[in-house]
């Protein structure tokens, strides 16, 4: 897709994305001549399609992590695998690895999101959270854990996070 500023007859440029709201991602474009901006709201299916294509709006590249897409979007994962910090994948010859994708930028899940590690007990509790808010709860708890220096998310950390969220 390309966007044209009708006033200036100039190609508009990608500026930024906004956090998905109820699954709908927003991309903001700007005209380099008149600085007019417009927001493109994608519906949840378009947003999900963008995720599945594994490309990144704005073309910004982060350090690559292997299996980024699988690890980011697979609903329930083996907690024993790929829990440590991932090394950067070589970009030689192939440019930046595509698997950093929309995750880091558009969906505001930092690439360092490999930790903290969830204990099986905490994961079991997370699964009891209704599916439509589970992803949001998971991100929130992980952010809380990171900010408070927890390398492991236990049931206790979840309780503290919950209290912190005022729930």
């Amino acid at each position: 897709m390309k966007f044209l500023c009708l006033e200036c007859n100039t190609a508009m440029e990608f500026k930024e994305t906004a956090t998905p709201d109820q699954g709908s991602l927003t991309a903001i474009f700007e005209c380099p001549d008149c600085f007019a901006e417009f927001a493109m709201h994608m519906n949840p299916w378009e947003t999900q399609m963008l995720k599945s294509l594994d490309v990144q709006l704005g073309g910004k590249s982060e350090a690559a992590q292997p299996m980024q897409m699988v690890r980011s979007f697979l609903n329930q994962q083996n907690p024993d695998n790929l829990t440590a910090e991932a090394p950067t994948v070589s970009t030689e010859g192939g440019g930046k690895c595509p698997f950093t994708s929309v995750v880091a930028e558009a969906f505001q899940e930092p690439v360092e999101a490999t930790g903290p590690v969830w204990t099986p007990e905490a994961l079991a509790r997370l699964e009891r959270v209704p599916s439509f808010v589970r992803s949001m709860a998971k991100t929130g708890i992980e952010e809380f854990a990171r900010e408070n220096g927890h390398t492991e998310i236990t049931a206790e950390v979840m309780d503290t996070a919950r209290g912190n969220f005022g729930m």
Binding site: P20, Q22, G23, S24, P44, W45, T47, Q48, M49, K51, S52, L53, D54, M67, M69, V70, R71, S72, F73, L74, N75, Q76, Q77, N78, P79, N81, L82, L123, F132, R134, S135
Partner: peptide, 30 residues
């Protein structure tokens, strides 16, 4: 190797699983 246990199906995180046919195949190929 990525799934949690025997009973866990491959389910991708999404706002809604309704109409997943629009993106599921692409996710699998990725």
């Amino acid at each position: 190797l990525f799934l949690k246990d025997d009973e866990t199906p491959v389910l991708w995180e999404a706002q809604t699983q309704k109409d997943a046919f629009t993106w599921r195949g692409t996710m699998e190929m990725s």
